[in-house]
Computed example of a mutant assay.
Amino acid sequence: MFDGIDIVVLPVADTEPLLELYVDAMGFEVVEAGPVREPEVAARLWSLPSPPAKTILLGKPGSKGGWIRLVEVPGLPRPDPAGRPDRPGPYALDFYLRDPDATEKEIGGRGWGFVSDPVDYLLPGTEYPVRERMLDQTVSGLLHAFVQYREGRTRCVLGERPEEDVSEVNAVVFATGDLPGARAFVENVLGGHVYFADRFGGPAVEELLGLEPGEGFEAVIARGPASRNARLEFLRHLPPASPRPPHAYPRVVAGCAMDDLDALAARLATGEHGASTGVVDTVAGPHLGLRSRYGACFYFWQR
């Protein structure tokens, strides 16, 4: 059963800019670093165009998921900008910030840019206020949603470690052209619980993402029984203003521990949900890679 995303894999040609962002500015800690073991196997599991050379695992000790694994792949092409959510694939990572103004000032001072000023809106279907701002993380071609942390309203490491200013990754967002199919995949194949299914729209969201007036999108968000980070979110991508080529490689691979890897492999064996590697024996134990047809790539291991 799916119980959150444990590790977010970010393949890049050069890890140094992201170390500065995630470690120096956002307070992640280097948990381990070194050459990738079995690089050909890793490339297969992560659907990479060539074997990765080294890996750096970043985490927030005390958190339950939402760690980041930077994977250096020599020669990997620079990704297209995230832009509008108008094609399938990874779109954003979400983080909670204890003091958004201070953290955003620190990050902006290091040369990173934002899509807009902060906006405030109510979470659809609720009276829950959200303060959010989008960072343009150009190294991976992703947006990063910086959301105001509110004590007692969400589970993340900020509730356990008052010295922390930025949470672990609390959600990974993928755009898809088949939102009903993605929801069925989450519920029936992964065993996740969809707790939010609604439409995001309105002037604040349009400003946040650079959308046209009246544009919005439907989304579903899933978590597991422990309601821990990081959550899995799919949004229905918007029609492109002009054709955009598909991404050349997965910019994000969601790593998840599962209760029964063999049972998951059997549910994926037909290929209905995308191309699966089947169970692959590695030095770290059995793993399974999936390039789904919903714009999301995964790798799984036995919990």
Rank of each mutant, 00 (worst) to 15 (best):
V157N: 01
A184N: 09
V194N: 04
V253H: 09
V253E: 12
P35G: 05
E151P: 00
P118I: 10
S276V: 07
I56V: 15
E16F: 08
V166L: 12
L238S: 01
L70A: 03
A145W: 01
H287Q: 14
S227M: 11
P49G: 03
L208E: 08
R223W: 11
M1E: 13
L290F: 10
D281G: 04
P225D: 13
P51C: 05
A42E: 15
A257C: 09
A171N: 12
L261C: 14
D120H: 03
L261G: 13
A241H: 15
I5H: 02
D262L: 15
L264R: 10
R231E: 14
A241V: 10
P88R: 13
I68N: 08
L190P: 10
A42C: 13
T126R: 07
L158W: 11
Q148Y: 04
L48P: 07
R87F: 03
V71P: 01
A257L: 14
C156E: 01
V283W: 02
S50G: 11
L76K: 07
G108E: 02
L76V: 09
A184C: 02
P17Q: 04
E16K: 14
V147T: 13
D86L: 04
T154C: 07
V31L: 12
E151N: 00
L238W: 04
R291Y: 00
G108S: 03
C156Y: 01
N188H: 14
K54I: 01
T282D: 14
V194Q: 03
G75T: 02
F300I: 12
A33R: 15
L143M: 02
P225L: 12
E72P: 04
R267V: 07
Y249T: 06
E20P: 00
L45R: 11
L48C: 09
D260R: 14
L211V: 06
A25R: 15
E16T: 14
V31M: 08
A102P: 06
Y195A: 10
A171W: 00
L57Y: 01
A25L: 15
P225Q: 07
L264F: 14
